[in-house]
Amino acid sequence: MSVNDEFTLYDLKVEVVANRGRMMCHERIGDYFEVKSGTIFMPEGQGFPLYAMAALLPLLPAKQRPTHPNDWMTTDSDIACPDVHCGAVFRISRTTMRTLRHSEESGEQLPASEAQP
């Protein structure tokens, strides 16, 4: 019996989309990074503010996963900069859906009761 250990995640784009005041963290509208599987990619020569990144990171794994249509994680995509003096707004957008395999992403074996035939 072969085991289907596939699961899906969304790739994400996190972009600076608005300025509601002074950009204290030196980001610029249009700056972005992408999340593909478990890796963050940035355009060559572009950085991203450390404290904004730290605030966004906990949201990314949840945004990668399929969620119920009524879940706020499905509908809400704009995040304010965590610096109260900064006016940056970041948007987390789901892009493509990627199929991954548990056996390629984890060192743990799936319990036999959870494996799909």
Rank of each mutant, 00 (worst) to 15 (best):
M1L: 11
M1Y: 14
V3S: 09
D5W: 05
D5N: 10
D5M: 06
F7E: 08
T8Q: 13
L9H: 11
L12F: 11
L12W: 08
V14R: 01
V17W: 07
A18I: 04
A18H: 05
A18P: 03
A18G: 07
N19S: 14
N19E: 15
R20F: 10
M23E: 11
M23H: 09
M24G: 11
M24D: 11
C25Q: 05
E27K: 00
E27M: 04
E27W: 00
E27A: 12
R28C: 07
G30I: 01
Y32T: 00
F33T: 01
F33W: 11
F33L: 08
E34M: 06
V35K: 01
K36D: 09
G38N: 15
T39Y: 02
I40R: 02
P43F: 08
E44H: 09
E44L: 00
G45Q: 09
G47T: 11
G47C: 02
F48Q: 05
F48G: 04
P49I: 02
P49W: 01
P49V: 03
L50T: 11
L50W: 07
A52F: 11
A52C: 14
L56K: 03
L56C: 03
L59Y: 12
L59R: 06
L60S: 04
L60T: 06
P61G: 04
P66G: 00
T67W: 07
T67V: 13
H68E: 14
P69S: 10
W72P: 12
M73I: 15
T75V: 10
T75H: 03
D76A: 10
S77F: 13
D78Q: 12
I79Y: 15
A80K: 09
P82R: 00
P82F: 02
P82E: 07
P82V: 05
D83M: 09
C86P: 04
G87D: 08
R91N: 11
I92W: 12
I92G: 04
T95I: 11
T95D: 05
T96N: 13
T96S: 15
T96M: 07
R98V: 08
T99D: 12
T99Y: 09
L100V: 05
H102F: 12
H102K: 00
E104A: 09
E104I: 02
E108W: 01
Q109K: 03
Q109A: 13
L110M: 05
P111I: 04
P111H: 11
P111Y: 09
A112T: 12
A112Q: 14
S113N: 13
E114L: 12
A115D: 03
